[in-house]
């Protein structure tokens, strides 16, 4: 099954506590929704294979906890990520305002410059919207991110968010090709490269 997978991509989901990061992931991977979903402890991890433009990609998705007390655990998962989904809650302006902080953190800990970013405004099924779609769009443009509004409850935009992100990553070849080349290098490099180095230690003594 793994053979026809083009590449494995590391995706990260970040954002304030309670914006629906885990719900988005759960909808995407298991197509379920739990209104009473407990707060994530530390970090969660899920794998899903999706096909984009005929290419299969295996997604290793890290869903981080938004709560302050887990903040020291999450940054290590930024390393090596190819895509990040930044989530805010359209019914809570504070989660939108604090996006800047998240972008800062991303810049601090992320190891690549060309990481593909997707901004997701979640919970559009709710009535009391506080952040307008255009505001989100504007913010995304300013920071050159992809943008979509979604609802994990009604499925709106969830699949689309992940698919577009993956599509964009695959269109940015430097992002994932270098990975596979590295692993090839490692293979040819491995053991049995003896022979040449057979002269050591004792030579100098003789």
């Amino acid at each position: 099954m793994d053979e026809d997978v083009l590449t494995t991509l590391k995706i990260l989901i970040i954002g304030e506590s309670g914006v629906g990061k885990s719900s988005l992931l759960l909808r995407f991977t298991d197509d379920t929704f739990d209104p009473e979903l407990a707060a994530t402890i530390g970090v969660d991890f899920k794998v899903k294979t999706i096909a984009v433009d005929g290419n299969k990609a295996k997604l290793a998705i890290w869903d981080t906890a938004g709560q302050e007390r887990f903040r020291t655990l999450t940054p290590s998962y930024y390393r090596g990520a190819q895509g990040v989904i930044l989530v805010y809650d359209v019914t809570r302006r504070d989660t939108f305002v604090r996006l800047d902080n998240w972008l800062n953190e991303l810049e601090t800990y992320c190891t690549r410059n060309d990481i593909v970013k997707m901004l997701v405004g979640n919970k559009i099924d709710k009535e009391n919207r506080e952040v307008d779609r255009n505001e989100g769009l504007k913010f995304a443009r300013k920071h050159s991110m992809l943008f979509i509004e979604s609802s994990a409850k009604t499925r709106d935009g969830v699949q689309c968010a992940f698919e577009e992100l993956v599509e964009k990553i695959i269109q940015t070849p430097g992002l994932w090709e270098s990975e596979s080349q590295n692993s090839k290098l490692r293979l040819s490099d491995s053991p049995d490269a003896r022979g040449g180095g057979s002269c050591g230690g004792y030579c100098s003594m003789l």
């Binding site: 407990a38 994530t40 402890i41 530390g42 991890f45 890290w62 020291t72 655990l73 290590s76």
Partner: peptide
């Protein structure tokens, strides 16, 4: 710990998330 962390712990135990060990 909550049962909810079981999947991620099992993922750790089967090779994912090596990068986190130092922050742990």
């Amino acid at each position: 710990l909550s049962e909810a962390v079981l999947p991620v712990m099992e993922a750790f135990a089967s090779g994912a998330g090596e990068e986190g060990s130092h922050s742990f």
